[in-house]
């Protein structure tokens, strides 16, 4: 047999796949550059300061909470608000009253467009001041039409009312058939038995589908962290109502749930200098709103052709 041929020494350019110093450095440069780019892209995360605590993270859906769990959450929210605003609030979970369905009636003849309802609402419901979140939008319309194309909400005369115009505040209409509830992918908003459509701010994922679905422009999104000056916080709070919201959640008018479910009038009604706003229980035949719907010229539910059937009625004095 022939003597075995010695294995030839590894040729320096044997295989193109072989790891050379040069190809290693090159691959490292690409890999390192990619990592650096990723790290830089994620750098803004360093400024994130409102990570949820474990309790917040594991909090359950509002409608699955037991009373004991709710109680614990309310106390936790009180502590969180106190830490941030220096005021100890009273946060309650006010349940709907039986035999009550809330209805709003607005007198277009009396409204003068002074926007006091807008600002009373901001103060009552702890809405963000910068940037502004306002539940009520007052439209100014020329006499003789209800053409929303002619509506203006930026009117700024010194004195109101102006001649030849009427005013129409629009807020959440508390529809009987609410499109915002239908589109919510996580059921963070729903209609309660007293007709109020509410939001669990801790369950909202901020997708804004409801804002797109609402034909009344009534849903408002917290694009930034809401800012409320210290000392202007309203400490009378409800879980589904005016407790401070986080960035990235939806909010809207809830007929001042923290007031109306304990029998008080909403803030926008109490501040109205003309008494154009009327509120009450439609199931009570003796209530003011029942009288109005029976006897006054209630001419519309806004955009009634959409079939949303609002609980907010506009009427005229005759």
């Amino acid at each position: 047999m022939g003597d075995p041929q010695p294995t030839p020494p590894h040729p320096p350019t044997a295989s193109p796949r072989a790891l050379t110093r040069r190809s290693f450095l090159r691959a490292s440069a690409v890999f390192g550059g990619g990592l650096a780019a990723l790290a830089a892209a994620l750098a803004p995360l360093r400024h994130l300061d409102d990570f949820p605590t474990l309790d917040q993270f594991l909090q359950k859906y509002y409608r699955e909470l037991t009373p004991a769990e709710m109680e614990r959450i309310l106390r936790r929210i009180e502590a969180e608000v106190e830490r941030e605003y220096g005021v100890r609030p009273q946060v309650r979970d006010v349940k709907p009253l039986t035999g009550v369905e809330y209805v709003y009636a607005h007198n277009l003849t009396r409204c003068i467009g002074c926007r006091r309802c807008v600002h009373a609402c901001v103060a009552e419901n702890n809405l963000s001041r910068t940037p502004e979140v306002q539940y009520i939008r007052v439209l100014r319309l020329p006499h003789g039409s209800l053409d929303m194309e002619k509506a203006d909400h930026n009117y700024a005369p010194e004195w109101v009312p102006e001649p030849d115009h009427f005013y129409m505040p629009v807020q959440c209409q508390q529809c009987r058939n609410p499109p915002c509830v239908k589109v919510c992918p996580v059921h963070a908003t729903w209609q309660e038995t007293d007709g109020l459509t509410v939001i669990d701010y801790d369950w909202c994922i901020g997708c804004r589908y409801c804002a797109a679905a609402c034909p009344y422009w009534a849903r408002h999104f917290n694009f930034t962290r809401p800012s409320i000056p210290k000392g202007q916080l309203n400490p009378d709070m409800a879980y589904l109502g005016n407790r401070p919201r986080r960035q990235g959640v939806m909010e809207k008018c809830h007929f001042c749930i923290q007031r109306t479910r304990v029998g008080r009038y909403p803030a926008c009604l109490e501040v109205c200098p003309t008494g154009a706003r009327k509120f009450g229980n439609i199931l009570d035949p003796e209530s003011e709103v029942s009288y109005i719907l029976k006897h006054k010229r209630v001419f519309i539910q806004l955009k009634e052709e959409l079939g949303t059937s609002p609980r907010f009625y506009y009427y005229f004095d005759v």
């Binding site: 109306t260 304990v262 029998g263 008080r264 009038y265 009604l269 109490e270 109205c272 200098p273 003309t274 008494g275 009327k278 509120f279 009450g280 229980n281 009570d284 209530s287 003011e288 009288y291 109005i292 006897h295 006054k296 004095d317 005759v318």
Partner: peptide
């Protein structure tokens, strides 16, 4: 007259407080 009637029924004029007498 008509305004007085509305006022008595609560449909004219301001109101503050509670939307039903049972609450306050």
């Amino acid at each position: 007259g008509p305004t007085y009637r509305d006022w008595e029924a609560g449909a004219h004029g301001r109101a503050n407080g509670h939307w039903h007498d049972s609450f306050g």
